[in-house]
Simulated scan of single mutants.
Amino acid sequence: MALISNTYGKGRVRVMRIKKDGPVQEVRELNVKAMLTGGFAAAFTDHDNSAVISTDTVKNVVNIVARENLGLDTEAFGKVLAARFLDRYPQVESVRIELHEVKWVRMSIGGKPHPHSFVLDNNGQPFVIITASRAAMEVVSGITGFTFMKSTESGWDQYYKDEYTTIAETRDRMCATAMDARWRWSREPEDFATANAKILSTMLEVFATTYSESVQDSLYRMGTAALAAVPEIEDISLACPNKHYLLINLQPFGLTNENAVFLPTDEPHGQIECTIGRW
């Protein structure tokens, strides 16, 4: 039998970096997965570990690079980490680094940012994926589970109908989602953190300020606006479950319900996905 492909590495390497600049400190917490591909087939097929870098060593490299690069944003840190494996180990042909960020937001005390106290931001988890060889390096940024909604200015009508269709048309419904989004960089922006924030804020502005004919309609216009706002990204992929809010029937109680009281449910949910690019 043939070994078709192989890779290995270390997952869930958790590391917190603290950059101290006088009394003001910056915290960056990451969960890192580093996977190596290269001259390791013999370990699978011939009981030969001579070329294999211990996964404990992979973990140590993550920690060492973290110590040497306390202030780098996630994308830049991932690029340095990938380069370290390629530069240090000739048997490594390519590396895939996945970095998931735990978001800490600086506290505001008395109306002023506190220098070293933070609260956890649970809305979405930023991530970065670095895929690197000695010939090329690709950087993808994104966020998972980023949740937002609007209570009106959304509709669903004029869709295809047959004998299996039961949902009623509406021009006024709630629209909510927990978005997974990723964007591929064609070149490095001046500042990754600023560019990432601009991508999200641009998409949210489109969502909030324009009528949504469907989730599909909103996603396309959100992605198009993000590409226009940040020229350094090549394309953007969006995946959005439609978190449903079902109008509760209050007629048995002699009450009306003009889009005021709903049953939140996310199972089953619609799943809408698309990629928008420049070509």
Rank of each mutant, 00 (worst) to 15 (best):
V24Q: 11
M222S: 03
N6K: 15
D266F: 14
V61C: 05
M203I: 01
V119D: 07
G124D: 01
Q271K: 12
T131C: 06
G254E: 00
V24H: 10
V119M: 06
P264Y: 03
G111K: 01
N122P: 02
T165G: 08
K33W: 13
M203R: 11
I129K: 05
S237W: 14
L238A: 03
M1E: 07
E153I: 14
G277C: 03
F127M: 05
E188D: 13
D162S: 01
G78F: 09
D217N: 14
P113L: 10
P23T: 05
M179F: 15
N49R: 09
E153S: 15
S154R: 09
W183H: 06
E267F: 12
I53S: 07
T209F: 11
L99I: 12
T166I: 06
S54P: 04
D73S: 13
E190S: 12
I18L: 13
W104V: 00
F40I: 07
T144V: 10
V215E: 08
N31G: 08
E93D: 14
V32M: 02
V27K: 09
Y160R: 03
Y160P: 01
A66W: 00
I18P: 07
L263T: 04
Y164A: 05
M174Y: 05
M35G: 02
I18M: 13
Y245C: 09
I276M: 00
F44T: 03
G38C: 05
G9N: 07
E190G: 14
I18N: 10
C175F: 15
D56K: 11
K33T: 15
G277T: 01
A225K: 11
E26P: 07
P268S: 12
E267V: 12
M149A: 15
D48Q: 06
D87T: 02
T275A: 03
F85E: 00
N6L: 15
A76I: 03
G22M: 11
V15G: 05
V105H: 08
D266C: 12
V92E: 10
E153K: 13
S186A: 14
G270H: 09
L120A: 11
I236Y: 04
T152H: 07
I64Q: 10
I18F: 05
A193M: 02
V261P: 00
K161P: 14
E258N: 14
R28D: 04
D56S: 06
P231M: 00
K79R: 15
Y220T: 04
M149G: 13
I97F: 10
E75W: 05
R96N: 09
T210W: 01
N196K: 11
R187L: 03
F44K: 02
H47A: 14
A82E: 00
P268W: 10
G78N: 04
I129H: 02
T256F: 11
A228W: 03
F148A: 01
T45I: 09
A41Y: 05
